[in-house]
Simulated scan of single mutants.
Amino acid sequence: MPELASNVVFRTQQLTKTYRVGEVEIHALRGVDLEFYAGEFVVLLGASGSGKSTLLNILGGLDTASSGRVFYGDTELTRSDDAALTAYRRDYVGFVFQFYNLIPSLTARENVAIVTEIARNPLTPEEALGVVGLSERLDHFPAQLSGGEQQRVAIARAIAKRPSVLLCDEPTGALDSRTGIVVLEALLRANRELGTTTAVITHNAAIADMADRVIHISDGHITTIERNETKVQPAELSW
């Protein structure tokens, strides 16, 4: 899969996703046209069930579209087979979820090393954990870390392979506001230092103030896209 040739990282054309539950059809995405640009920090805002996670899962190669087209650079993901999508996820995409999914028996350093040992041009575990401010916690196990620290280890693990894109699904959803701000600072630092295009799903409207662009999603549609002329630092957010 080629590297990006332009500043457009993702492009979707009339993207739809329909799930069938028994006799009921659920339309998660309804004709989404969207672009993401290299190096930007984007917040996708919408209520639960609006289609945010479905969109990110398709962009990340974890799910497939029902119709429409998805491009990563010039590569059409909607035409990629399972092997190509696996390679795409491994080489280009970092994921951060609401729950940390760390291996309890491994230290922070070892949890990150799981990725660095298979990546093509990784950061070292020490470098990745340094980006998220955990240089002093390398040899601590998850049970010895707070929730915010565990989430930052998960971010370090995601950025260690130097992904082109970092897709984050409610990364502060399980955290209080003070801890959440520390996690958002870690995401922003990774975005700035590594140039990684970062997309953050949230239902928390306050987080939108730190983004380059805010994409509002409702009932499977993109309703509005806003650009922040003046961005707020995470420490200035309140929710």
Score class of each variant (00 low, 15 high):
Ser164Leu: 07
Glu229Phe: 06
Tyr100Ser: 07
Thr196Asn: 06
Leu175Cys: 11
Pro2Val: 02
Phe41Thr: 11
Arg89Glu: 07
Tyr37Gly: 02
Leu85Trp: 07
Ile215Arg: 10
Ala113Tyr: 04
Ala83Gly: 06
Ile222Thr: 07
Gly195Gln: 03
Gly60Val: 06
Asn57His: 15
Thr124Trp: 07
Ser135Leu: 15
Ser67Val: 03
Gly147Tyr: 09
Gln13Met: 14
Ala205Val: 06
Phe10Cys: 04
Gly220Ser: 06
Glu25Trp: 08
Ala211His: 01
Thr223Asp: 12
Leu77Asn: 05
Ala160Glu: 02
Leu129Trp: 02
Gly22Ala: 12
Ile118Cys: 07
Arg189Gln: 10
Arg89Cys: 13
Gly51Lys: 12
Gly173Ser: 09
Ile207Ser: 04
Pro2Leu: 12
Thr18Ile: 12
Val42His: 03
Leu184Ile: 02
Gln144Lys: 14
Arg162His: 03
Met1Lys: 01
Ser164Trp: 01
Gly94Asn: 11
Tyr37Phe: 15
Gly68Ala: 09
Asp81Asn: 15
Ser6Thr: 15
Ser146Glu: 02
Phe141Pro: 00
Ala211Trp: 00
Pro171Phe: 06
Ser105Pro: 00
Lys231Cys: 12
Asn121Asp: 13
Gly173Tyr: 00
Glu136Gly: 14
Val21Ile: 14
Ala119Phe: 11
Val153Ala: 06
Lys231Leu: 14
Tyr37Cys: 02
Gly46Glu: 05
Tyr37Asp: 05
Arg227Gln: 10
Val96Lys: 05
Leu184Thr: 07
Ala108Gly: 06
Tyr88Arg: 08
His27Trp: 13
Leu77Tyr: 03
Glu185Trp: 04
Ser105Glu: 10
Ala156Phe: 13
Thr12Tyr: 07
Pro125Trp: 05
Lys52Ser: 09
Glu236Trp: 06
Gly220Cys: 05
Ser238Gln: 05
Val96Asn: 03
Ser146Ala: 07
Arg227Asn: 01
Thr16Gln: 07
Ile159Phe: 09
Val43Lys: 09
Gly39Ile: 10
Tyr92Trp: 12
Val8Gln: 06
Val182Gln: 10
Thr124Gly: 03
Gly60Gln: 04
Gly94Cys: 15
Asp219Pro: 03
Asp81Val: 11
Met210Thr: 12
Arg152Pro: 00
Gly133His: 06
Thr12Val: 11
Phe141Val: 01
Leu55Ala: 08
Leu129Ala: 10
Gly94Glu: 14
Ser146Val: 04
Asp81Gly: 15
Glu23Phe: 13
Ala199Leu: 15
Lys161Gly: 13
Glu23Gln: 14
Val200Cys: 01
Gln98Met: 07
Tyr37Trp: 14
Val24Glu: 15
Gly180Ile: 02
Thr202Gly: 03
Arg79Val: 13
Ala128Pro: 03
Thr107Asn: 05
Leu187Met: 08
Arg89Pro: 00
Pro104Tyr: 13
Ile114Met: 13
Leu166Pro: 00
Val182Tyr: 02
Asp74Ser: 09
Arg137Met: 13
Asp169Lys: 00
